[in-house]
Nucleic acid binder design. Structure first.
Lengths: 341, 341
DNA sequence: TTGTATGCGTTATCAA
DNA sequence: TTGATAACGCATACAA
């Protein structure tokens, strides 16, 4: 069970083999070619190739006080919204020679807290986080250590960080306008628990506001569902259906995960979309187009959100001291069969 | 634009504050409490808490020659198959105090090669890879440096690494048995390009074999589709439909990504599942249950695959020298409406 | 039970 | 244009 340690090739080996000092090799690595005799440069170049040498990022980081690691803490890695953002963030990260440390909290504040600690131990240069909203102190401690933090999708009261997301208010308003145009007699809003998650709060608030504006305040039916609890969604869905018998009705799902669960539940109840019930989702997962005659949905520019978050982090890492800003992208409403009578 | 460097608290600060030497603090960190006076231990404990000290993983890694980083290179992070595996791998990783460096290659061998280099520079302790199959030399160089490698889903000829996947042969055979039982007159197999990807090869081979065994060898219709090319899927799908007019027919999609594209294409052609065409998929994405009367699909135990891959890596990191093995999980066929006449 | 000294692989300062 | 040396934060051999 013992593991033989293979010694990796170091700058010392390169120096020795090339017949120069470590300092000279280091100069080559830093790209200071103007301080090198062309002949020396060539010799180092060849030696590095011959030995297949790669600088040790840990040693370099220790000296330079930078890890070239960016932390990314996400609430749910199985959510397509999340992976699209990771993909965008990672592309930019990679292009700049950084690596991404991805941590999945499953929306568990304890896990989130542990991960933030681990990332701190790795001396990450920056953090992109889709937070549970329950670790503000930990996040503040990062800020105190001068590690830039960018929030994605969810902002946190009392934390003055950069924030990248979408304009939830306008998106919901536009979608509600469409639904109200269709003259549904009832519209319900299904969301995961709102407490602590700003995007959910914004979306539900915009929902209420739209109804009030159109004098439908009596419909303010917001169902908060904890998807971890087996039957909760079905119970609340049934409640809505019972209470709206013989009325034309629509459901607004507050994100892609809820949307999927509702589609499945409607399927199980043998109901038809949109004849029995219309449906519209925030988030436009790829499969939305394939269910029935298509599910109407609000598409976020997820890849671009990831790109923007990483660009913001890297600019801070590289020394920008711009004041924190909130960047809201515009979402796009795709109307499909699920909301057309 | 200049960034003031906040000095992080180090072991030296703790030692000073606690009135002991760095060595003593180090002993505390290593958990060698039996070498410490209870009083000293307490004092160090308190100081660490007071200063909010966290050991620098880079410095520790430099000394101990271990980064506590595991690399994970995946071909497509937006594929639910991939994220489920990441989730499993990450859970185990985290439980063991390691962190996961996730890299998404988008199936691009060049990107893959670059990522392997970067991971090497970070001195990862192990690598889990869902490889494009075109960077065997780079993978071998990892092995030479004694960095354990575990392949997921795709094995590579000439590389004697551990491999975690599913029993493709049995899974396809069972699914084909079901399809043949339904007496379709034609069955076509749609897959992404097979070359270099072992799982695709195994699945298509099992498809052919099943047909031959049932004396349907004449049907050996395997369509390879490069999804990056806009119209390729639709062209090949049309070809199959043209050639099978007035025959009852089914399509076997070789993975979840292809399955989704086919569902969308069928939708665009205004065809009905299963009346016009039956459909069965390898991979059982969450939405499969929600399309039409449900899409029949082969479910892989993806989370468990991720868990197994990480457990294998960590056991090697910790010194196991077991010979490389291939672990094949059993997939499960879920029959739904899409293949029932 | 505790401390001193050295080195991990790299960069930075200074001198030549 | 090049090199010797110290230092980054930590762990460890050895000494006390």
């Amino acid at each position: 069970m013992s593991k033989s340690q293979i010694p990796r090739v170091t700058i010392k080996d390169v120096a020795l083999q090339a017949g120069v000092s470590k300092t000279t090799v280091s100069r080559y690595l830093a790209g200071n070619y103007n301080e090198l005799a062309p002949k020396t440069k060539k010799r180092i170049e060849d030696t590095i190739a011959a030995l297949n040498y790669r600088p040790n990022v840990m040693a370099r980081g220790l000296k330079r006080n930078t890890s070239h690691l960016i932390g990314m803490v996400v609430a749910d890695i199985t959510n397509p919204y999340t992976t699209a953002i990771i993909r965008g963030a990672e592309d930019i990260c990679n292009q700049n020679g950084y690596n991404l440390l991805v941590c999945n909290t499953d929306n568990d504040p304890q896990k989130e807290s542990d991960y933030i600690s681990m990332l701190q131990a790795h001396r990450i240069d920056g953090l992109i986080i889709n937070t549970t909203g329950r670790n503000n102190e930990a996040l503040k401690s990062l800020a105190l250590e001068n590690i830039p933090v960018v929030l994605v999708d969810r902002k946190v009261k009392g934390l003055d960080f950069d924030m990248i997301g979408v304009d939830n208010h306008s998106a919901v308003k536009e979608a509600m306008h469409h639904l109200i145009d269709q003259d549904f007699e009832r519209i319900a809003f299904f969301t995961e628990p709102i407490e602590g998650v700003s995007s959910r709060k914004e979306r539900s608030a915009a929902f209420e506001q739209s109804l009030r504006k159109h004098n439908h305040a009596s419909w303010e039916e917001i169902y908060e569902v904890d998807l971890a609890k087996e039957d909760e969604l079905m119970t609340k869905l049934s409640h809505f259906l019972e209470s709206s018998k013989n009325q034309s009705k629509a459901i607004f799902a507050a994100n892609g995960v809820v949307l999927l669960q509702i589609v499945v539940a409607i399927q199980n109840l043998k109901l038809s979309i949109p004849d029995d019930i219309a449906l519209l989702g925030f988030d436009d997962p790829e499969w939305a187009i394939a269910v029935g005659t298509g599910i109407s949905a609000i598409a976020q520019p997820t890849y671009e959100i990831g790109v923007a978050a990483m660009e913001k982090i890297l600019s801070k890492v590289k020394g920008s001291n711009m004041l924190p800003q909130t960047i809201a992208f515009t979402a796009k409403l795709n109307i499909r069969g699920s909301t057309q009578k």
